[in-house]
Design a protein around this nucleic acid. Structure first.
Lengths: 252, 252
DNA sequence: CGCTTAATTGAGAGCCTTCAATCATCGTGG
DNA sequence: CCACGATGATTGAAGGCTCTCAATTAAGCG
C-alpha cells in the first residue's frame, strides 16, 4: 500500500522512529496520505494548523493578501516538513509544483504526540527554528533588498537545494515558473525576467528553456545577494552541494 | 537573588514546570541572566543559535543586510521567547527598546533539554509555529502590501499586544521609535510619518507626543491593513484586548 | 529655558510596476 | 516528425509609489 510505504519512509527518515512503535502507530492514525498533481492545492482543514510531510515532489506554500496578490512564503522538496497556519489575516494554501506525495496531519494532535517522544520532539525542535530562521532571512530580503539582490539570493539558495552537476556545470532545474519566483520575491514576472537578463549579461548565469538555469559564478552571485561580507566562505562551485542537499531536510 | 526570581517565573509561567525539578535545575544551569538598558544589544554567542526568554521589558530582533540596512524581524514583550539564528547570511542582534530582563540560553542545549520533557516540549512546539506564522504574515506584508497597509496592520497588531484603555480610549504607548517602525515595515521614517498623517487625517488615529497613539477606529484600521475580508470578526473597540494580551505569550 | 534629538513636511529622483507587444517554448495533433 | 496553437517569457515605454535629500517643527531632557 502506497500509504504505508510513504509513511514508513517518513517516520524513519524524518524522525528515526520505527513505524511499529507506539508513536509510529499513533502517527499512522493521524496521517492523511495525499497525491497531488502539478498545480493542485492540498486539501487542508482550515479550522486549525496543519503539519505536512512532503514525501516526494515539490510544493509552494502561499498566502493570499487579496485575490490577486499572492505571496509565496516557502518552497518545499522531498523530505521537508511544513507547518501551515490556519487562516488568520491571510489565507494559506499548499500547492504542488510537480506531482507530489504528501502526508497531512492535524497540527494540534501531531504536536501533542511529538511532545511525548524525545526523538520526535527533538527533530521538530530542530526543524521549526530552521524554518523560522529561513522565514526571517526572507523577510530581510523582502524588506531591505533590491530586485537584483533578491533574485541573486534566490538562485544561490536554490543552488544549495536543487543544484546538480550536469556536464560539469552547476545546473538548476527549477520546478517553479517565473510567476512563482516573482510571487516568492515580491516582484512581478517582468522584473524577474529583467533581472535574470542582467545576471545573464554579467556572465553569472545562463538560461536554457523555461526551467533550466546554469550557474557560472556562484561566489559572485552570493556576493550580489547583498549578504554581509563572508564571501571567503563561499566555495565558488557547486560540486559539493549535492551532499549538502541530502543533509538539509529542513522544515520550510 | 534577581536571577532566581526571574528564572522561577520563567519556568513556571512559560512552561508550568517547577523550578526544583530535574528539568528546572538543568535549565537553571544553562541560563544566563542579563539586564539590558534601553538601546543596548544583548550579548549573544554568535557561534550557535540562542533561545532568549524576555522576562520583562521590550526588545527588537533585527537583522543587518549591510551596515546601513536594518530589518527588524520581530518585537518582543515580557513573557515572550525568542529564537535567534546564529549568523548566516545576515547578522542578528537582540536590542532592548526599554530596560529589560533577559534569560539567555544556548539553543542546542536548551532544545536538547526541552525534548526530554513533555510539558516543556509541548510549550515550545506551540510557540515556535506561532512565531513562524507571524513571520510569514510579516513576509506577506513586506512582499505584497503598500506602505499604508503595512502601517495599518502594524498598528492593529500592536493594539492586540500593548493596547490599553486610557480615559475610555484605546491607547498605544509604543516603546519603539519611528525608525524602528520603519525598519520593521521595510519603510523609511519619512514614509512612516506620512502614512501616520494619512491615518490621522482620516480620523482613524491620533498621535500624542512621540510614543502615544490613540486608536479611534480599529475595525477600519484592520480593513485598511489589506487583509482578506473578515471584518465582521473585528470588534471595533479594544476593551477586550487586555485580556487577550495575557494569553498570547507567543514566541516572537 | 535652551539644547539635542526625533518627527514632520516638501520637492525631486529612482526603482519597480503597469500596460502593451513580441518572442520563445512546449505540448498537441496532423 | 513537423506544424500549429496556447501558454509562458522577454522586451519596451510610461507611470506611480517610495526613497533620498533638505528644511522646518516639535518633543523631551538637562
Amino acid at each position: 500500500m502506497a500509504v504505508h510505504s510513504h509513511f514508513d519512509t517518513f517516520v524513519r527518515s524524518a524522525f528515526g522512529i520505527e513505524p511499529g512503535g507506539r508513536v509510529g502507530v499513533q502517527l499512522a492514525m493521524l496521517a492523511n496520505a495525499v497525491s497531488l498533481s502539478r498545480g493542485v492545492a492540498a486539501p487542508l482543514d482550515h479550522a486549525g494548523d496543519q503539519i505536512v510531510f512532503v514525501a516526494q515532489g515539490a510544493t509552494k506554500l502561499s498566502a493570499h493578501a487579496s485575490l490577486d496578490r499572492e505571496q509565496i512564503v516557502a518552497f518545499h522538496f522531498g523530505g521537508d516538513i511544513v507547518s501551515i497556519p490556519s487562516d488568520g489575516p491571510h489565507s494559506y494554501q499548499l500547492t504542488a509544483l510537480i506531482d507530489s506525495e504528501l502526508l497531512i496531519f492535524p497540527g494540534r494532535e501531531f504536536l501533542d504526540l511529538a511532545a511525548t517522544d524525545a526523538i520526535m520532539a527533538r527533530s521538530m525542535l530542530e526543524r521549526l527554528p530552521s524554518a523560522l530562521h529561513r522565514c526571517r532571512d526572507k523577510a530581510v530580503a523582502l524588506g531591505q533588498k533590491s530586485a537584483l539582490e533578491r533574485l541573486a539570493g534566490f538562485l544561490a539558495a536554490m543552488t544549495e537545494r536543487v543544484g546538480k552537476l550536469i556536464d560539469g556545470k552547476c545546473t538548476l532545474d527549477l520546478p517553479m515558473s517565473r510567476r512563482d519566483i516573482g510571487d516568492s520575491l515580491g516582484l512581478t514576472i517582468e522584473t524577474v525576467s529583467r533581472q535574470l537578463g542582467i545576471l545573464r549579461e554579467a556572465g553569472l548565469i545562463e538560461t536554457r528553456g523555461r526551467s533550466r538555469i546554469v550557474i557560472f559564478d556562484l561566489a559572485t552571485l552570493t556576493r550580489w545577494a547583498g549578504h554581509l561580507d563572508r564571501t571567503e566562505k563561499i566555495s565558488g562551485d557547486c560540486s559539493n552541494l549535492i551532499s549538502i542537499n541530502a543533509a538539509t531536510a529542513v522544515a520550510d
